[in-house]
């Protein structure tokens, strides 16, 4: 765990240095484009977290091993943190570059829905009162359904916009388009740093999930079975 934290911290020092000093100023957007180097990796991490949620939920449903459930729990919660940051940094970037906090464009909107789905997953877990094993199964099924739904939602939101009769006022723009090699290098470093951060946070959260399960098991010791019911 400690080597992982150190590696993440070091990667972030390098990434921030590269963003501040190595990456060139973008011609049109100027300094505002520096948000790009955190926004895109954040979005990438949020979607990876959903992928982890999907895979570990499926595994848990197949084998019923608690460790898969703990990983799903960790991935969903960390996913919310990243999805929130995607929305906030995207909004700030939008305000700086396009002059608006929010446009109802496809990518932004489906990220917002993703945030809702993850929040719903975490709420289901924290509000469920039945036996823990049942809560875990219910959450795993929800995790699979939400992950399968995300591409469908994305598709429908995309059609919703492009087939809209009104002209689209603002476009998200070709983000990946005009990147110089230096920008690409900086983005890769930042991507690596954020991926490490994702792994670290999920690992930390998974440790806590283990402790949560232990406490839950203590509540269900034979002596207090009647009280815990």
């Amino acid at each position: 765990m400690i080597p992982l934290v150190i590696a993440t911290a070091a990667a972030f020092l390098v990434a921030l240095g590269a963003i501040a000093l190595y990456a060139p100023l973008e011609a049109v957007q100027g300094v505002a484009q520096k948000i790009f180097y955190i926004h895109v990796p954040l979005a990438w991490c949020a979607f990876v977290a959903v992928g982890v949620l999907l895979v570990s939920s499926l595994r848990f449903l197949r084998r019923s091993e608690p460790r898969h459930d703990r990983l799903a729990r960790a991935a969903a919660e960390v996913g919310i943190v990243f999805a929130t940051l995607v929305l906030v940094t995207g909004s700030l970037w939008g305000k700086a570059v396009w002059g608006t906090w929010w446009t109802w464009d496809g990518r932004l909107t489906s990220t917002l829905v993703l945030w809702f789905l993850l929040a719903g997953y975490v709420l289901l877990r924290s509000l469920s009162e039945g036996p823990p094993a049942r809560t875990a199964r219910a959450a795993a099924v929800l995790g699979v359904i939400a992950a399968v739904d995300i591409p469908i939602i994305h598709l429908s939101v995309q059609w919703w916009r492009t087939l809209h009769p009104d002209p689209v006022v603002l476009r998200a723009g070709d983000i990946g388009g005009g990147l110089t090699p230096r920008m690409l290098t900086t983005l890769s470093i930042s991507l690596a740093a954020f991926s490490l951060l994702l792994v670290t946070l999920i690992a930390l959260r998974r440790r806590i999930a283990e402790a949560e399960d232990e406490v839950e098991a203590l509540w269900h010791l034979p002596g207090r079975g009647d009280l815990a019911a």
């Binding site: 719903g120 939400a146 598709l155 429908s156």
Partner: peptide, 10 residues
């Protein structure tokens, strides 16, 4: 509703 409405957005 918090679960059902976003999931049925399409």
């Amino acid at each position: 509703p918090i679960l059902a409405l976003p999931l049925t957005l399409p």
